[in-house]
Amino acid sequence: MLTLLRDLRKLRRQIGLPAARRPGSLALRHVDCGSCNGCEHELTLVSGPTIDLARYGLGIVASPRHADVLLVTGPVTTRMHAALLTAYEAMPEPRRVAALGDCALGRGLLGTPTEVVGPVESVLPVDLRIAGCPPTPQDIAEALLQLIDSA
């Protein structure tokens, strides 16, 4: 166990993450609306030791009721449409919506038209667009920090 903690500390020193100098924080809630799981895999690493978004006061919260930002992935399937709207309705205001990944942005959308509603912006007002298939953890982190900086 001590080896594990020592290795993690060494890793942190090697990466040399810059000190977090941003005021404020953002609570994020993720809703998967039919992604290929690529965006989720990379979003998970944003909370990992190499980027550690929590340093900037950004964290994934368990309920949309605690969230400032809704991070939506996938092309919005017909079966997730209602759940997405419910999650959005549950958020306190002011609230922001981020479309994460090319599917959510409607770029190169694949699927049968009857099963897919369309890009996130056809359903909700989108404030932040994070392109990529999937966007890298670095891309996701930089985009989210912009959202703090622009607030």
């Binding site: 998967d32 039919g34 092309p75 399937t77 997730m80 694949l110 699927g111 049968t112 099963e115």
Partner: peptide, 8 residues
């Protein structure tokens, strides 16, 4: 499951 069914 099948909330993510996209008819691929």
């Amino acid at each position: 499951l099948f909330y993510k069914h996209r008819g691929l």
